[in-house]
Design a protein around this nucleic acid. Sequence first.
DNA 1: GATTATCGCTTGTAAAACGCAAGTGAAAAT
DNA 2: ATTTTCACTTGCGTTTTACAAGCGATAATC
Lengths: 127, 127
Amino acid sequence: MKKSTQASAKDKPTVSTSRRSPCPVACALDTIGDRWTLLIVRDLILGRSRFKDFTSSPEGIPTNILSNRLQRLLETQIVTHCAAADGSKRLAYQLTEKGKALGVIVIAMRDWGLAWEPGAAAKMSPL
Amino acid sequence: MKKSTQASAKDKPTVSTSRRSPCPVACALDTIGDRWTLLIVRDLILGRSRFKDFTSSPEGIPTNILSNRLQRLLETQIVTHCAAADGSKRLAYQLTEKGKALGVIVIAMRDWGLAWEPGAAAKMSPL
DNA sequence: GATTATCGCTTGTAAAACGCAAGTGAAAAT
DNA sequence: ATTTTCACTTGCGTTTTACAAGCGATAATC
């Protein structure tokens, strides 16, 4: 008993529901404003879909952080689970409509990075 | 002596010069990827220019964080000091070209927030 | 011109988040 | 059947954050 698919009381939310203000920019930053989340979205846009795909990106995200961010992205409905492309039982992730809508932000960041950050390489972003 | 305008050895950099990868998205996130920086940029776009202006924004940024982020923004040449509009001796801040170029990212976040974040209010963003 | 208030920070401290390494159980490959 | 890969979780030390208080310099007020 107590082993249902429902969220139990022990499941502490990984995303705080409180917003700092009603400003849409602040709301967006409350959800995606950290150093890792948009890199996962970038990978998803590039067609990567599995845990190990994200860990093998050049930035080297720690697995506990990745796990936490994927859960947040699920909670905020930016990604959903889906079947793996190779038909295996392992899970994969894909962007929802809400998640795909983040594409313009990622593109804007890519463009700004390319234009203003000296270390940025164009070949890294076939977006 | 030792009291020059140069950076002394004691001035520890508030911005790490190391990039996680050459990806322009990652480079952008290394510079502006946190929960506060783009809110300051938003305020600057809205015409606010002084320390107290930023502290009086509805999100209530802590003053030590604000101080740290302003210094980073100066170091990364996203903002510069300028004379206060009222002619007083107090300093003010303004966006550089590099900083103004962040406008499209802020706009993209506003649009996404408005479209997908329930709590976001349109009136908060006369951008 | 003396006092008071405001401004632009800095410092102290506790709590939270982060980053690294190691471990674990289920699935897949051999 | 054994080994390897995968997708995490756990522990733990370090860093960052948030909240409060303090402080010198400027500006306003009496």
